[in-house]
Design a protein around this nucleic acid. Structure first.
Lengths: 208, 208
DNA sequence: CTGTCACTTGAGAGTCACTGTCAAAGGAGG
DNA sequence: CCTCCTTTGACAGTGACTCTCAAGTGACAG
């Protein structure tokens, strides 16, 4: 979500030095500690200060890394992945189909490995209002990017009503899928649920 | 001051006494004062304390009435109206059609009267992240109620995937409509934009 | 009208997420 | 090894939001 800190002077590859690796390691560690504490005492009862103490960093650093308390739960790297994949689909592919494929691919190939962690984080996304609205915000940003992708593919303007409606409906549907998946205790594979949802959406929201 | 005609016992309707009327009047007044201040100094720069002072109530009361700062902007009475209308549509009417009619009716008959105020409030909903997420939350509540309505009409369970996807896509589309309407400076009537959006949704999100 | 009851309001103190600043620490590059 | 510049931590706010308690004030009965 929050744009990465932009270095004043562009170095050659600011992404791979010791600094960057240290930062990523620290973030993973902090998130882990935070989730442990949240699991034990509840999200609301754990202060940032507490997390900072437990993770042995300063509260300032947590804010610099994550921006907000919700992001301690929500932070992950999937969104850019999906967008990247959509852009890599060949231009001839139908736009909706490109999205469908990309999301399915992630759901099938990447997520299963992290499923434990994902479930753990999802619980908060549906039980803590603050986390929930952070999730929605994140999804909205993804929506904007999907819309831009669709705009490029179709030649339409990004502010076009049709595009807005389509991408909003898509991400709305996606959130519904996550909610269903969560509430049915991850019974079916995410991919299977996604397929059913896509069918409903492209079938014109007909019920039955 | 003439005493209003007071029915002997009024236990049945605790909603119309002097207390309730005073409260509603106070809420309207506070919201007005708040919007004036926000317009003049910007949302973030105005504290609740300031609003309270200007409106001559205590900050505690503002929290009791509105709960959060965003609700000072977002509070209105349309949502229950729409839900009420949906429920009143005859049972034979196609569910989607019932929703479409109810929303259109409100957009056509009720909103134009308050359009000035609505626009004023919309500006904050799209420029202030906090207000925005409050709006989303409100819309999500409406979604839950729409879904229940659909469940009753179709005999499906409220947790059904199809139902979730349909209602989420609908409200997603609705938010997109509001955004489009706002960003195009309220050029077209809300009703007209809604019609176009409904067509896209029931056409299966086909682009072009 | 009047007293009692129950609900509402205001005052005040407290918590905590989040921000901005500044000096110190420590990688990056020569 | 040394200089630069980014990152870190310490610190001091700010303001949204919560809780509690005492005082005020409509509702209602007698």
């Amino acid at each position: 979500m929050t744009t990465a800190p932009r270095p004043a002077t562009e170095r050659v590859r600011p992404d791979v030095g010791l600094r960057e690796r240290k930062k990523l390691r620290a973030m993973r560690h902090i998130q882990e500690v935070a989730l442990d504490l949240f699991d034990e005492h509840g999200y609301a009862a754990v202060t940032i200060e507490r997390v900072a103490a437990e993770a042995e960093v300063s509260p300032s650093s947590i804010y610099r890394y994550f921006g907000t308390k919700e992001q301690l739960v929500l932070y992950d790297e999937y969104d850019p992945m999906i967008l990247d994949m959509i852009d890599k689909e060949p231009a001839e592919v139908d736009p909706m189909e490109a999205i469908r494929r990309s999301i399915s691919y992630i759901a099938k190939e990447i997520l299963p490995g992290d499923e434990e962690l994902i479930r753990r984080r999802m619980r908060y996304a549906w039980n803590e209002p603050a986390v929930r609205s952070g999730l929605v915000r994140q999804v909205e940003e993804a929506e904007a990017m999907i819309r831009e992708g669709l705009a490029r593919r179709t030649g339409k303007d990004g502010g076009d009503l049709e595009l807005k409606v389509v991408s909003a409906a898509l991400v709305g549907g996606f959130v519904a899928v996550l909610e269903y998946w969560h509430q049915t205790d991850y019974r079916d594979s995410l991919d299977a649920v996604l397929e059913r949802a896509f069918d409903v959406l492209s079938g014109g929201l007909k019920l039955e």
